[in-house]
């Protein structure tokens, strides 16, 4: 029983990261109808930037917000410079450019910081939580920071005019322009937010998986799985899906398939859900008109 609880809690901690990635993926999907295959590599690159700042002697809690801001700006620039001009280009062009970004970030990180793994410090003390060893302090911290961030994002979209405008621009760009919303800036803002959320996920997971250019590939796959399970049309669903696949991954790993096939588990989840319930658990069914 204690083992089960341990696995579930640590699954929730991983799930927090998947939830962030899933949310970032869904935000971009809702805005431009594309999957950001480079989401993980962008987060990895942000994490390297954070690592570099810490190498220069800056403390974690200063690095954290600075890195989030830099990532936000980076996301805005990527949208403006790279995706703005091909906004009306066909699907394949988009997939190609996402893959190109993937390779560029992966390769540049390796070139600048080398492919050797690096330890990334956790901001949380290494002691037991309330005298139990059910969950590590860092894992608890991951869940905590993620939840705070998710609540902030919810409040932003629910209650601020810009948040409302971003939702409107994604749902109905033509009408959005007719009330004076600059849809292209809303898109850039969405990219900035997605990049910032990714940076948070990267900085939180790096202490657990070590920092290296390929660290986010598996996590991105689980983020996609979370987004698909929760429903690509529902940001809240994607977050729930992220937590869900985190727990499922850990329990399946502990009791069924072992740790060797975790990515295969994600593959089965993604293909299975897309086939059997394409709208996910919480999404709407989208009817394609011909």
């Amino acid at each position: 029983m204690e083992y089960f609880l341990q696995q579930t809690l640590s699954g929730l901690a991983n799930g927090a990261i998947y939830a962030c990635v899933a949310l970032a993926v869904v935000m971009i999907y809702q805005a431009i109808d594309h999957f950001n295959f480079a989401q993980g590599e962008m987060a990895m690159f942000s994490t390297f930037i954070a690592w570099q700042m810490m190498q220069w002697g800056m403390p974690f809690w200063l690095v954290f917000p600075v890195c989030v801001v830099i990532s936000f700006a980076g996301g805005v620039v990527i949208e403006r410079v790279i995706f703005g001009p091909i906004h009306n280009a066909p699907v394949l062009s988009h997939v190609i450019v996402f893959i190109a970004l993937f390779s560029i970030f992966n390769s540049l990180a390796g070139f600048i910081w080398e492919f050797t793994i690096k330890p990334f410090p956790s901001p949380f003390p290494e002691k037991d939580v309330l005298g139990t060893n059910l969950i590590a302090m860092h894992e608890l911290g991951m869940i905590g920071i993620t939840l705070v961030m998710l609540v902030m994002i919810y409040l932003f979209f629910r209650f601020t005019p810009i948040g409302l405008a971003m939702r409107a621009a994604a749902a109905n760009p033509v009408s959005a322009r007719l009330v004076g919303i600059s849809v292209k800036w809303m898109l850039s803002l969405g990219w900035g937010l997605a990049a910032a959320i990714g940076a948070v996920a990267g900085m939180l997971i790096a202490p657990m998986v070590y920092l290296e250019p390929n660290m986010m590939l598996g996590i991105l796959l689980y983020g996609f799985a979370g987004a698909v399970v929760g429903g690509l049309t529902s940001p809240g669903g994607a977050v729930a899906g992220g937590f869900l696949v985190g727990v499922a991954e850990n329990l399946a790993g502990a009791y069924v398939i072992g740790s060797e096939l975790k990515l295969t588990f994600a593959l089965v989840l993604i293909v299975g859900v897309l086939l059997l319930r394409p709208a996910g658990l919480f999404g709407r069914v989208v009817v394609n008109r011909v």
Binding site: I96, V97, I99, A100, L101, F102, S103, I104, N106, S107, L108, G110, F111, F115, P213
Partner: peptide, 11 residues
């Protein structure tokens, strides 16, 4: 590692 960045640029 750098060849992937060059690939990306060419894409």
């Amino acid at each position: 590692g750098l060849s992937w960045a060059v690939y990306g640029l060419f894409l």
